[in-house]
């Protein structure tokens, strides 16, 4: 097996990694310390491992790390600016849209993707955007409210990404 060298811009910083050819981004990111990228199902069903890859939310468990070479990634760790949380993170806290927290990074990433493209989503559009993010603690009412609140915050001028 010939190991590969790839370069990724993660949360604004360019980094170089040695990877196995068949490795997925999820494994590489967690190995490199981005533990906010959660491992859930490993088969693209739960969304816990979602990251922004070149601006779009994807399941990192289904992206070959070699495919991402030269790309730009944003993980949950890259959303806050210092101590200042991203408006989506603030909204999830304010609305109590966090139970055990395992699904939350993926939910937040999917929300950032949605609101970047659609600043004023309907409830149906929110539910569609979060359809690939499963929460096993409870239902999705508070998450939907949180996305609506985040949209209000971002319309007020707060954007990070």
């Amino acid at each position: 097996m010939s190991r590969l060298t790839i370069t990724l811009t993660i949360n604004g910083r360019e980094k170089t990694f040695r990877i196995d050819p068949g490795e997925k981004l999820l494994g590489v990111l967690r190995r490199e310390g981005y533990m906010g990228v959660k491992k859930g199902c490993g088969s693209g069903d739960c969304g816990a491992c979602a990251i922004l890859f070149n601006g779009r939310a994807v399941n990192s468990c289904l992206v070959f790390a070699a495919k991402a070479d030269g790309g730009t990634l944003i993980t949950i760790e890259g959303l806050a600016r210092g101590e200042i949380l991203h408006p989506v993170q603030i909204a999830f806290l304010e609305e109590g849209a966090i139970q055990c927290g395992y699904c939350t990074p993926g939910m937040v990433i999917a929300t950032v993707d949605l609101l970047t493209k659609n600043p004023d989503p309907t409830e149906g559009e929110i539910r569609e955007a979060l359809a690939g993010n499963l929460c096993r603690c409870t239902g999705y009412v508070k998450q939907v409210r949180a996305v609506q609140r985040a949209a209000e915050l971002m319309k007020g001028g707060e954007t990070h990404v």
Binding site: A57, V58, N59, L62, V63, D113, E128, A131, G132
Partner: peptide, 12 residues
């Protein structure tokens, strides 16, 4: 397309 999988998969 709106009925195909979820956005996280459609994005890839």
């Amino acid at each position: 397309l709106r009925q195909v999988a979820a956005p996280l998969l459609r994005n890839a």
